[in-house]
Design a protein around this nucleic acid. Structure first.
Lengths: 228, 228
DNA sequence: TGCCTGTCGATTGGATCCAATCTAACAATC
DNA sequence: GATTGTTAGATTGGATCCAATCGACAGGCA
């Protein structure tokens, strides 16, 4: 490990940050577009159209769509093409049931390995959320907050699955900015406090309430939408 | 709905059972092969070779591999190809952590909607397991048993995710037939009993023990393998 | 009128071809 | 002798082309 080489770190990193293949690029871009709401639910994704937009052939598009299908972000019907998955109450319920199972588990496994640095980072994110008004950015920060507390679990698949469903939930929320605009900051603070004192039972309980509250808000939104 | 058409049911069904696209067929076949252990962990999956074996071009193979990648069944490295995912202790731990979160949740949500039919079906499957010696078939039956108790949850994504990880766990088990050969039938019976009496707390507790036992067995297997 | 049928355009699925990248073996240099 | 540079073969990524399927619409028939 020579000292002179360390200066290359940043360059290598940013080089590695670039996409190694067109399919990767398309997948990441479409994923972002779907989750951010830029592509509305139900939007048909025509391969030819995407190909011209991305300035490449249909092939990388096809492979990217296949991967998004496996991730549950698009619905694929043979010979009929792909559409952005719809947002329904049933899906939201489903998502919350999964999150309510995964997140407490991740928290339990992570809690014993959390240190002062992690709590400080969590506090920082909470503060950032306080100062933020852009809903898209708030969703991103909310996700970062949760994942910060789970990260020490050290189980990559559990964490990836958890984050995936957190991101999906964020997508639901993005379509009902209606709520008070508060992401449950009181609960966020209570959660960090419980974690700091190492109280697993309390932490899991707070997290459970936090998720239940988010679910209630979303259910209310769907009820309101159905009523109009 | 003419009566003469009903005789076609079987044919239509088996026709519908057939794959609508080559990619679907390849995906299902490879999935089965990987999970059943026919394709050993670490096996490189060369597109050209698979193409000749399946008697088609590389294209459906490529798309199928991409989907398997998204499902976590193969590892994909750009320009280097796909290999069957390795089986490691870390992965097994990860898998059990996920199952331990999802399955109790599925059971809790399903329990209130379970009826006598479901319990009878569960009993049947238990009996079948008793009379079975083929480990592959036992894994399949074990999966059926668990999913029977969860099915009434009525949340498709939660159930699909649960089943996916059950199947993956089965793959781990297939490589250590070493264990007593008993899939925890005593716990299976206790689980059904608890469900019958509607005792959620007890049912979830039994399920937790069941999963912990399976995990302990698998951990022991890895320890033994590392020691050799 | 209402339903079935067949044809046409649009779109996706699959095959073939070429380019880019990786792996491994070998030669050259220090 | 070890390391680096080079080159050839294998393998995957991407482009282009053809075939199969779907949806809509028009026309025939009871």
């Amino acid at each position: 490990m020579g000292g002179a080489v360390t200066s290359l770190e940043g360059i290598i990193q940013s080089g590695g940050r670039r996409y190694r293949t067109a399919t990767e690029y398309v997948e990441a871009t479409l994923k972002q577009a779907i989750l951010s709401g830029a592509l509305l639910p139900g939007t048909p994704l025509r391969q030819e159209e995407l190909a011209t937009r991305f300035e490449m052939s249909r092939m990388p598009i096809r492979e990217a769509l296949r991967q998004l299908e496996a991730q549950g972000l698009v619905d694929f019907e043979p010979h009929r093409g792909a559409i952005v998955v719809e947002i329904t109450l049933a899906d939201a319920d489903d998502n919350f049931a999964i999150r309510s199972a995964l997140e407490p588990q991740a928290l339990r496994l992570s809690l014993p390995h959390l240190g002062a640095d992690d709590f400080a980072l969590a506090d920082e994110v909470i503060a950032e959320i306080d100062g933020e008004t852009d809903p898209a950015r708030m969703g991103e920060l909310n996700r970062r907050f949760h994942m910060t507390l789970y990260a020490a679990a050290g189980l990559p698949r559990l964490l990836a699955l958890t984050e995936q469903h957190l991101v999906a939930a964020d997508r639901y929320l993005r379509f009902h900015l209606a709520t008070d605009g508060d992401m449950g900051q009181a609960e966020h603070r209570a959660l960090v406090a419980a974690c700091r004192s190492g109280d697993e039972t309390e932490a899991v309980a707070v997290l459970g309430r936090h998720l239940a509250r988010a679910k209630a808000g979303l259910t209310g939104f769907f009820a309101a939408r159905a009523a109009t």
